[in-house]
Design a protein around this nucleic acid. Structure first.
Lengths: 233, 233
DNA sequence: TCTTGTTTCATACGTTTGTACGAAACGTAC
DNA sequence: GTACGTTTCGTACAAACGTATGAAACAAGA
């Protein structure tokens, strides 16, 4: 029988490997989805990579789509929670003083780039997944992702607006979109750095470590966010 | 029998509708690919949308993958040609004078956003396609796209470096990546603007027209590119 | 030990997939 | 008008697809 609430642990499961195959499936699906997209990955490839039986997907997730949804949820939620937590800390530290824009952006960028501390080793897969999450064609996945980001954007928007009081809120919307685009594409390139054809220049670009990458993104988008208003219309 | 050189017109075809089904297929595939990705679109959906026979794909393109490749090539090449052409004009006008960074970026952004003047009406599909082109999981498509962009990046890199002589070339590489990320994600959001959940703010964001969008992107990424060097290492 | 609930496994089903192939239809040149 | 190269069409096929199902394996409680 299928279990009704997939997110609740079962009592009858063995103690040490609770939900082992569930997690094996999520890990394998994450890797494959991040490389070939959802449609480009078959259930059979996933179960083969996970080393479990074909029926396991149907049993644990019902359908492939729900598996995909849980794959995204598992990564997005912690990242976005951490973003808000970092902003909370920042605002608490600042008290009444004005926050530096750069610090706010760092709190937004860092959780997406840094390896999460839950001990899972496949950190590249997370990053690729989060950087791909906006582009997923599946409408259900897309709306889930956008919903996930809604709260983060709301919190950071108001924090940023306080540091840029001259910027209309409607303008910040677009600048935030540019921010996420820059971040996610940058992550994608960072991960595929060795395969991406480098431009023939006098100096070849360096592959920064995580901290260097964060600094570069933060620097770029901080300047972009604080850009003077263009004379639109 | 299949024709050997697919890019050459056949003599026996009727005069007015030369390659009619070829173009119908490219148009339909473009729209569907841009919405659901390559893997997410079946050959049968394409031929149904194009109103042609199933065999047509095999006859005109051989395989689905080659069709996809031609779909991308048809749009990317003109956009990138136009980028370089605009830069040529700009540099010719400037003569010995120094170019303004903003103008260079405009030449890079504008062709991707503006409707091409070849009379085709499906301008949204182009834009969505060009904004998705970097994310396509198919490795053959991916390498094609990256190769396509290589020359553009090379030309614009050196033009930009002349306006920002203090910026190391290796740093510009990353800023260019952020630029493309911001542009493409911004385009994606612009196209889906009405479906994207807007943040609850005092002021709701406006949907700019093409020119307004270009100005906003250019403003953002120009500031980002010219950002002061962060103290990395 | 027997029961119960959970998880795994093997297998099967009905679709849909990409591609292939031969016959028909077409326009053009001789 | 007949022959020819090009394009269309209908259909076929094997493979892969997502999903369903029922029996086996398992752990734990009574």
């Amino acid at each position: 029988m299928k279990q009704e609430a997939a997110s609740f642990p079962a009592q009858g499961a063995q103690a040490d490997s609770q939900f082992a195959t569930r997690i094996l499936l999520l890990d394998a699906a994450e890797r494959l989805f991040s490389q070939h997209g959802i449609e480009g990955t078959s259930v059979r490839e996933i179960i083969k990579a996970a080393g479990v039986n074909l029926g396991a997907v149907n049993y644990h997730f019902g359908t492939k789509q729900r598996l995909a949804l849980e794959v995204f949820a598992r990564r997005l939620e912690p990242v976005n929670r951490k973003r808000i937590a970092l902003l909370d800390v920042l605002e608490a530290q600042a008290g009444r003083r004005k926050l530096k824009l750069e610090r706010i952006i760092d709190a937004l960028i860092r959780p997406a780039v840094e390896t999460m501390e839950d001990g899972t080793p496949a950190c590249d897969d997370f990053m690729r997944l989060t950087s791909r999450c906006f582009q997923e064609p599946d409408p259900e996945v897309k709306s889930f992702v956008e919903q996930q980001f809604a709260e983060v954007v709301r919190r950071f928007d108001s924090a940023i607006l306080r540091t840029l009081p001259w910027l209309p809120a409607g303008e910040l919307f677009w600048r935030m979109q540019f921010l996420f685009g820059a971040l996610h594409h940058g992550q994608e390139i960072l991960l595929r750095f060795d395969q991406v054809p480098q431009p023939q220049l006098d100096v070849s670009p360096v592959k920064p470590d995580r901290e260097g990458f964060i600094k570069r993104v933060v620097s770029f988008v901080t300047s972009g966010l604080a850009a003077p208003m263009p004379d639109v219309r």
